[in-house]
C-alpha cells in the first residue's frame, strides 16, 4: 500500500537529515504503529506520507521515494491537495472546527462539492456511526463540536476524516490527551476501521501499539531500527535496542 524506499529527509535543505535511509512497506488494511523516543522522527515520517511537511519551505526528501498505491507521491504531477483526499490525518490535539457537530463531519464532503442534503445527512450519520459516536450526538448535531468531551471530540475528528472515505488514515498520538476509557473507545474504533482503511499510528504507549497494531516500526535517532509483526516486536524483538526501548531500559 505504502512503500517507503530508502527515504532520507531534511528540514534544512539537506544540511542535516532527521530521517536517514528509511525503508518499509506498510500493508493495506492493517494497523501499523511507529514507536520510538521523542525526536526520533516518527511524526516527520508520518507527515511525509501526506506531504504535510511541504508546509515547511526548507524541507526536502533528500534520498529515496515514497510510493502510495504505486505512485511516487513527490512526483511533479502529484498535487498535494489531491493526495490528501486519499489520506486522512488525525492529530494528537483534537481539533474540531468551531462549528456544529454536523458541519464538522460534512466539511470535507462540502469541499468536494457535495451539496445535496440527503447525501450529506447519510454520509454524516454513517461516519458518526463508524466512529461510535452517533448514539451520543444524534440529538444534538446542530450543537457546537466544542461542547463535546475530549474523547468525543477526538472521535468526531476521526468521523470527519472517514466521512470523505480516504484510503489511508494517519494518526499522530491520537489518544495522548484522552483518559483511559476514551482511549479504549478510540482504540476499539481503530480496530474496526482496520477493515476498511490502512492505518498508520504514532504512539508513545507500548501497550497501545501492542494492543491495536499488526505491524510495528521502531525508530531511533532518525533511523528505522526494526520493523516486524507487532507480536515479534513485543515478545521477541531481533534488535537489542528495540528490546531496551520497549522494556523501559536506559537508552
Amino acid at each position: 500500500m505504502i512503500q517507503i524506499d530508502n527515504v532520507s529527509f531534511s528540514y534544512d535543505l539537506g544540511k542535516t537529515n532527521v530521517l536517514r535511509n528509511i525503508s518499509l512497506d506498510i500493508p493495506e488494511k492493517k494497523v501499523t504503529s511507529f514507536i520510538g523516543p521523542s525526536g526520533c522522527g516518527k511524526s516527520t515520517l508520518l507527515r511525509c506520507l501526506n506531504r504535510m511537511n511541504d508546509l515547511v519551505e526548507t524541507s526536502r526528501v533528500t534520498t529515496g521515494e515514497i510510493r502510495i498505491m504505486d505512485k511516487n507521491i513527490n512526483a511533479k504531477d502529484v498535487d498535494a491537495i489531491e493526495l490528501r483526499k486519499n489520506i486522512g490525518m488525525v492529530f494528537q490535539k483534537y481539533n474540531p472546527f468551531p462549528k456544529s457537530i454536523y458541519d464538522n463531519v460534512a466539511y470535507g464532503l462540502r469541499i468536494q462539492g457535495i451539496k445535496k442534503k440527503d447525501i450529506l445527512d447519510a454520509a454524516v450519520e454513517k461516519a458518526l456511526r463508524g466512529a461510535a459516536l452517533w448514539d451520543e450526538v444524534k440529538d444534538r448535531l446542530k450543537d457546537s463540536a466544542l461542547g463535546l468531551s475530549g474523547g468525543q471530540q477526538q472521535r468526531l475528528c476521526i468521523a470527519r476524516t472517514t466521512a470523505v472515505q480516504p484510503k489511508i488514515i494517519l494518526m499522530d498520538e491520537p489518544c495522548s490527551a484522552l483518559d483511559p476509557i476514551a482511549t479504549a473507545k478510540v482504540e476499539e474504533l481503530i480496530t474496526e476501521l482496520r477493515n476498511d482503511y490502512t492505518i498508520v499510528i504514532v504512539t508513545h504507549s507500548m501497550q497501545q501499539a501492542s494492543r491495536i497494531s499488526d505491524k510495528t516500526a521502531f525508530f531511533y535517532l532518525g533511523e528505522l531500527i526494526e520493523y516486524a509483526d507487532t507480536d515479534t516486536i513485543f515478545q521477541n524483538p531481533a534488535q537489542k535496542q528495540t528490546e531496551d526501548y520497549i522494556s523501559g531500559r536506559f537508552g
Binding site: Q235, E243, I246, S247
Partner: peptide, 10 residues
C-alpha cells in the same frame, strides 16, 4: 504494575 515486555515478560 510494570507491564513487562519481551524478555522481562518471559
Amino acid at each position: 504494575k510494570f507491564r513487562p515486555f519481551a524478555s522481562d515478560l518471559r
